[in-house]
Amino acid sequence: MNTFKLQDCQKTTIKNICASFKNDPGELINILHKTQGEFGYLPEDVQREVALNLNIPVAQVYGVVTFYSFFTMKPKGKHAISVCLGTACYVRGADKLVDELKEQLKIKVGEVTPDGKFSLDCLRCVGACGLAPVLLIGDKVYGRVDPEQITEILESYE
């Protein structure tokens, strides 16, 4: 389970992120946000290191990581796909986008393809309801997506 082992330079990265927030436990969410940006996810050893720097229990860090759906303990694919399941997207067929992606990638929501290329997640409202249904790949936003476009979109990430 705990296969990820931190290198010294990675410890320094975490140390610097924590220091940039003055090692303030009140900034835990921001620190985790930035750390996840750096590592792509928040494996056990990363959480332990954050706790060590902030001098707070690891249980507390883990509590926050498991509370917010944005944080993840599993590595993401090279291209992280997020489908918006907010109300507007949902009524305009976002669930069908999810089904299509699951079918084509042969993974479930929250999983990564065996080659590590794509991961699939759902989120709640990206604030682009006018473009519903919306999906994101990395930072790129796709609006008014039809399930039939999925093949083409995925192929553009060859």
Partner: peptide, 26 residues
């Protein structure tokens, strides 16, 4: 566990219906 004893073994983890009190990484 956290404030009085500063042992830090227990925290509420997960969310909503799945919430439990557990040590880190359950």
């Amino acid at each position: 566990c956290n404030t009085v004893q500063t042992v830090g073994a227990l925290s509420v983890v997960n969310r909503g219906f799945m919430s439990v009190v557990a040590p880190a990484f359950e």
